[in-house]
Design a protein around this nucleic acid. Structure first.
Length: 321
RNA sequence: GCCAGGGUAGCCAAGGCGGUCACGGCACGCGUCUGAAAAACGCGCUAUCUCAGUUCGAUUCUGAGCCCUGGCA
């Protein structure tokens, strides 16, 4: 059976560095599982650690560069423009292709990233409904109040009301979208189609989950934000706003949206940076919650443990033997 | 030193003609998640500067003290 290693963990837990050294050691290549690094031109704020490697083919190969200068082929960066919308299904489909490609080269795919939902879908731990997004329907529903959406859903799929988060507009809209696609609807949007759902990956999966105390992670994340500023994040944001505007899907990203008020003159740069740090903390918390629940079976490591890298190495070695 | 304003949770902050109180926001903590996921959403969070007075009852009224912020010297 083919083997695959997944590395998850919150922002600033050191996933990429760890993955690079593991790939170096065990002959792996990285598949990024990160909904934001998938955006072109968003480099500093999403923390891509890349260079463009030499390639004989037309498409350049992206490579992650580790602390020790190791360079590892990396896939699924730069999939879309900031103006485009990503979705878990398409992402997972492409990831599956890359997994197969890497296997066919007799290498080990390392899925690394902090977007837990995408990781779940790629691994097939979570089944999607098979109903594609219908942007025009969404736009239409967006204009309705939560109460009106609830009322619609009550008509279309009364059972769903039991389990849905009724205060969450996005969820309400999606539930209606699914119900509509199953045919019971005068809303009837013909554009909705269905896809296969992704089954569990055909392979043996080792999942490593990195963690640490909140305070420890916050400090590391804060330092990373400072480094991003140092590296020219503000200019990157300025450039992107000019090309795509604040409403572009990509610009909703942590590390970009926080600068809107600054550019509009409402807050100082210092305040914007502090806000970004706080939002990053909140994001770290959410990620930890997600991984705790949906990756409970993973091999967990506290990155503060002095021997954590050794332990990871021996676990992976054992697994690949 | 004088004048004015003010001290409400870790921070910012609303209010109350005295009723056993206490709006918000941020931070922080916890959680939800089935094609928007760095998104979206939910829950939680030990507060009225000190002392005295008036009163059945003070966070609110009175006095003193301490501290802070402006302005004048």
């Amino acid at each position: 059976m083919e083997k695959l290693v997944a590395v998850v963990g919150p922002t600033a837990s050191g996933k990429t560095d760890l993955a690079i050294s593991l790939c170096q050691k065990f002959g792996g290549e990285i598949i990024s599982v990160d909904s934001r690094q998938a955006y072109k031109e968003m480099n500093i704020g999403t923390g891509k650690m890349v260079t463009t490697g030499a390639s004989n083919t037309s498409a350049p190969i992206l490579q992650c560069v580790g602390a020790k200068g190791d360079v590892i082929n990396t896939y699924l960066y730069d999939l879309a423009l900031p103006s485009e919308r990503l979705n878990a299904y398409d992402y997972a489909t492409q990831a599956r292709e890359k997994i197969n490609e890497i296997w066919s080269k007799n290498k080990i795919p390392f899925l690394v990233g902090g977007t837990g939902f995408y990781m779940d879908v790629i691994l097939g731990q979570r089944q999607l409904s098979g109903v594609t997004a219908d942007q025009s329907l969404r736009d239409k529903l967006e204009g309705l109040s939560k109460e009106e959406l609830l009322e619609k859903l009550r008509h279309l799929d009364p059972d769903k009301l039991q389990t849905i988060d009724v205060k969450n507009k996005y969820r309400l809209i999606r539930a209606i979208e699914i119900a509509v696609s199953f045919g019971h609807a005068e809303l009837g949007s013909a554009s909705i189609t269905k896809n296969e759902t992704l089954k569990r990956v055909q392979g043996d999966v080792l999942t490593l989950s990195l963690t640490a105390g909140n305070g420890f992670l916050y400090e590391r994340a804060d330092r990373r934000v400072d480094a991003m500023i140092e590296a020219g994040l503000v200019d990157e944001v300025k450039r992107l706003v000019k090309s795509y505007g604040w409403e572009a899907p990509g610009m909703k990203t942590l590390g970009y949206r926080e600068f809107r008020l600054f550019f509009e003159g409402a807050v100082s740069l210092k305040e914007a940076i502090q806000k970004l740090k706080f939002n990053t903390h909140a994001y770290i918390r959410r990620q930890k919650t997600y991984f705790k629940k949906y990756f409970a079976d993973a091999l967990w490591f506290d990155i503060r443990e002095p021997k954590f890298v050794e332990e990871v190495n021996s676990k992976v070695e054992l697994y690949l033997a």
